[in-house]
Amino acid sequence: MPARQPTEPPRLTLDNVTCERDDRVLFCNLQYNCQAGTLLQVVGFNGAGKTTLLHALTGLIAPAEGQILWQQTPIANSARAFRQALLYLGHQAPVKAHLTVAENALWLARLQGASVERLDWALEQVDMLAYRDITCHSLSAGQRRRVALAQLYMSQAPLWVLDEPFTAIDKEGVAKLEALLERHCAHGGIAVLTSHQALRVAGMQTLNLADFQPQAGASYAYG
C-alpha cells in the first residue's frame, strides 16, 4: 500500500471550535475526536455551517476560536504534512469542461500527489472508463461528479473531507460509494462528510451542528 501512509494511526481532533460568518456565530465550542476508522457524517439544517465546518477542517478558513489538530498538531503548524494526508472534494466538482475525463482526473491526481497508475482502474470504478477521452462539457452533472470522485480511488490520503459527495449520483453509485467509504475506514482511514441522504454504512457516527448552536442570549452578534 501507499508508502507515505504515516506510521502512527491518523487522528483528527476538533478542539473547542467556534466558527463565524459575517459576525454571526454559526456553531460554537465544538469538541470532537476522530480516531482511525471513523466515518463521520455532519448534519444540520440549511445554513447551520456544515460547509463552513468542512472548510475549517481542511484549513481553508481559520476558525474564529479553538483549533483543529491533526496527529495532535494544529493544522496551521504542520500545513504540508496535513495537506499530504488530506483529500478534499468540495460541493463543486473541480472538472474543466474543455478537458477530457482522463485529463481532468489526471491533473487533480497529480496535484494531490496521488498514484497516477491507477487512473484507468479508478475511472472504471466510477463507471466513467467508457468516457475516458470525451471532453467533459458534454457530460451530465452526475458524470462530472463521478470524474471528481475518481480521486477517492486513486488517493492514498488517510483523511477524506467530502462536501455532499452524493449530489447528482444515482442509486448504484451511492451504494458503491458507501462500500468505498466503509473500506477506507476499515483500513484505518478517517472520512468526514456532509450529506442530505441517510447513509447505510456500519459504524457511522453523526455530528449534528444543531447541538452546538450559540445560546440565544450569549450571541450578541445574532441578527
Binding site: L60, Q92, P94, V95, K96, L108, L111, G113
Partner: peptide, 22 residues
C-alpha cells in the same frame, strides 16, 4: 475566475505544494 467557480482553487490551496508555486 474559472478555478474559483469550479472549486479548483480550493484544490490548489489544499495541495501539498505551496500555493505560490501553483
Amino acid at each position: 475566475r474559472g478555478d474559483y467557480d469550479d472549486g479548483s482553487l480550493a484544490q490548489f490551496q489544499l495541495a501539498p505544494q505551496p500555493l505560490y508555486l501553483t
